[in-house]
Design a protein around this nucleic acid. Sequence first.
DNA 1: GATAAAAGTGAGTGATCACTTCTATTCATG
DNA 2: CATGAATAGAAGTGATCACTCACTTTTATC
Lengths: 213, 213
Amino acid sequence: MKTPMTQRAKHLPSDERRAEAVEAVVELAASANPEEITTSAIAARMKLTQGALFRHFPTKDAIWQGVMEWVSERLLARIDRLAGAESDPLAALKAMFLGHVDFIAEHPGVPRMMVGQLQNTGETPAKRMARALVENYANRLRRILSAARAEGVLPPDLDIDAAAALFLGMIQGLVMQHLIHGDSARMRADAPRVFAIYRAGLVAGATAVEGRT
Amino acid sequence: MKTPMTQRAKHLPSDERRAEAVEAVVELAASANPEEITTSAIAARMKLTQGALFRHFPTKDAIWQGVMEWVSERLLARIDRLAGAESDPLAALKAMFLGHVDFIAEHPGVPRMMVGQLQNTGETPAKRMARALVENYANRLRRILSAARAEGVLPPDLDIDAAAALFLGMIQGLVMQHLIHGDSARMRADAPRVFAIYRAGLVAGATAVEGRT
DNA sequence: GATAAAAGTGAGTGATCACTTCTATTCATG
DNA sequence: CATGAATAGAAGTGATCACTCACTTTTATC
């Protein structure tokens, strides 16, 4: 009678193992503080020993860098696809926003990891990657907002940078609520309501309100 | 000639040492990832040995709890004072917002610590404290927003919860920009511009915009 | 099917962490 | 000014971390 030994892991090419590791991290971050995601935990989820992990990544930060690339590619591809499908710029913004919220609901670890990276003090490649994602995202927002202003859909005095910052803030605000309540259905439900106020602020224009207060 | 030995720390009552420790953490968080703030680092900044720290706190999380109380008291007191000084609800909101941004500019470690606590998985007293702060803050926002709606300053169909969430999101968005650029002067400058869009969104009302898009 | 490269194992390594313990110093109180 | 309690210092402790290494197993290639 053989003892049911823990099976030895199958040999896989390094590319595939790296992809596995990145996905393991994304999944782990859904329920764990990113700082607590140890190389042992990653390896365990991959059903690998910890040492084997370092055959495919030179350092732990290289894993994080891979994760940030994963997030970047997926998120930007999604919002580009959604925004591209809309002709009206405001509809494109809304589609981007709701798509982003969906992405977070599908991968709840993502904002946690992003914040975790941005919090880091050193200048690691992973942090650079995270910052680049935010920059790329903001550029896309500014492009759409500028186009909308040029089309006359948004008022000529609209503060593009402030509008882009507020868009990102909306996401952050929903993420924080999500962190506190842990309810992604609620986040999805809140998203359109928050966006409605944002859109109203965009179309109203600054001068229209200055006189009011 | 005496060697300049490191001076022995003065004996202080536990209350004062605890206050010192909390302030040391707040200062350290201004330039360090909260996860990297070790008890040794705290003690070093207090010019104390690490062991001495545990004479005044039973555990490290107790220190964090003290820090979160410090933040709670200071921040809520400030926004209450600022909001109370305004008769117009919209002016009160703006004063709260700019006061909050000032608070963050004065204590850049605060949002980092808050996020760090909310990221934690376990149910520590410090995390409860952080969550309580957010709840209290949101309650104050809802109260002011409701009052404004009742006064007719804001439209009757305004979504109070969404407006409160967006307010918190504005702060988060500025914090993220601050994390990325590390420029608190810029954050202070951006704050009123972002708030202008927010205010426009509030006063416009939902129905006024539905038809536009 | 021999062989070498690639991938996995398992047992380390040193560094660092929160926390403890024992001793030394300070300080308030009589 | 003696004394005891409070506080600080110094040197631990065990746990955990990222990372290494010698060795074994698998896999691709001729």
